[in-house]
Design a protein around this nucleic acid. Structure first.
Length: 321
RNA sequence: GGCCCCGUCGCCAAGUGGUAAGGCAGAGGUCUGCAAAACCUCCAUCACCCGUUCAAAUCGGGUCGGGGCCU
């Protein structure tokens, strides 16, 4: 049983924002019986459609998508939630005799599914708030100093200014009595639940940036400002995580009258470029990724996927491919 | 033709004799439960030439470039 699960095939497609992932999925769906399991930390929010470039209804008809619209914008959602839902979705797709394609740009989400996650306690908003309050009260650096006492190995690996990670480490310690660095050492992303073929989509930088600009213009034409206004009208806190998404936070600034629409657009484009760059940095570190420029290389991809299917099928005769 | 002002990294910009702040853009990177987040690193000898000086982006002269005013 365990063995079969380990060998279950999973096609992974990653790439920076606007690199053409959805288009590629649709293209592949014409040749293979695939279903997409989205790995996107913003497309999980209901109501954030235009700004997160969710696959359209037409696209979803051609290639079924899972794990979109999971929670409301003000609900908590974490990598761990995502990973467990993803495993379920992947199992369902396999049970239907189809090939699951984990598709997305959120590096951590992808990794959590393909390599697992430490089994440290879930984040606790109350603990976080308390820690941050202390940092505010006793001054910057307080928490990091604490971390140096509690978990020296981790304190060595993260910069003193990284409050987010410092808080998480202290939170884990408080909740479990164990160091996060110990959890991590034991885990070391060593799980391999699937047999994967990883494809990375990366157009040349210049072209990618052009595509980003064009996509942002497109979002505006499709009515992103109205979508944002609608979310605010429904009472969502402009500070909530979902609304701090690129495209939303800038437009919120504009709606508040802090910046002009033109300025907002410039900011959205710029922040998207920065984001794309970070994604690229993340993916570059994964040696297993086979890189392609665009959908134009779908012939090459097709070959790769065929080989992949043959290989995984022969591993144990159960798969229906 | 005359007089005056200006010329610091792709952009904005500090620095007026002591050996080039900062911001933005750009590039590289980190990443184990907020990840479209958070964080880190890199990135100029000051238009050019001559001179004064122990020392010049800072002073003097000239050249080039930009702007203003006058005739």
């Amino acid at each position: 049983m365990k063995k079969a699960r380990e060998a279950s095939p999973l096609l992974v497609i990653c790439g920076p924002t606007a690199s053409g992932k959805t288009a590629l999925a649709v293209e592949l769906a014409r040749r293979f019986p695939i279903e997409v399991v989205s790995a996107d930390s913003r497309q999980v929010y209901r109501g954030l459609d235009i700004g997160t470039a969710k696959a359209t209804a037409a696209e979803r008809r051609q290639a079924p998508h899972h794990l979109l619209d999971l929670v409301d914008p003000d609900e908590d959602f974490s990598v761990a939630d995502f990973a467990s839902l993803a495993h379920g979705a992947i199992a369902d797709v396999l049970a239907r005799g189809r090939l699951p394609v984990l598709l997305g740009g959120t590096g951590l989400y992808l990794r959590a599914v393909t390599e697992g996650l430490v089994d440290a306690p879930t984040g606790d908003p109350a603990v976080r708030a308390e820690l941050l309050e202390r940092e505010g009260r006793e001054g910057p650096g307080t928490l990091f100093r604490l971390l140096r006492e509690v978990d020296p190995p981790l304190a060595q690996r993260i910069p003193p200014g990284d409050v987010t990670r410092t808080v998480r480490a202290l939170e884990v310690y408080r909740l479990s009595g164990r160091r996060l660095s110990d959890f991590q050492r034991e885990h070391a992303f060593a799980e391999r639940p699937y047999s994967t073929l990883k494809i990375g989509l990366a157009p040349p930088r210049e072209e990618l940036y052009r595509r980003i600009d064009r996509r942002v213009e497109g979002m505006l034409e499709q009515g992103l400002p109205a979508e944002v206004r609608g979310l605010l009208d429904r009472g969502y806190d402009p500070e909530c995580k979902a609304l701090r998404t690129i495209g939303y936070r800038e437009l919120i600034q504009h709606l508040r009258g802090e910046i002009s629409l033109a300025e907002a657009v410039i900011l959205i484009k710029r922040n998207s470029r920065h984001y794309a760059k970070r994604q690229l940095t993340w993916f570059r570190g994964d040696e297993a990724i086979i890189w392609v420029d665009s959908c134009g290389e779908s012939a090459k991809l097709q070959k790769l996927i065929e080989l992949f299917l043959l290989r995984t099928r022969s591993g144990y005769g159960q798969d229906p491919f």
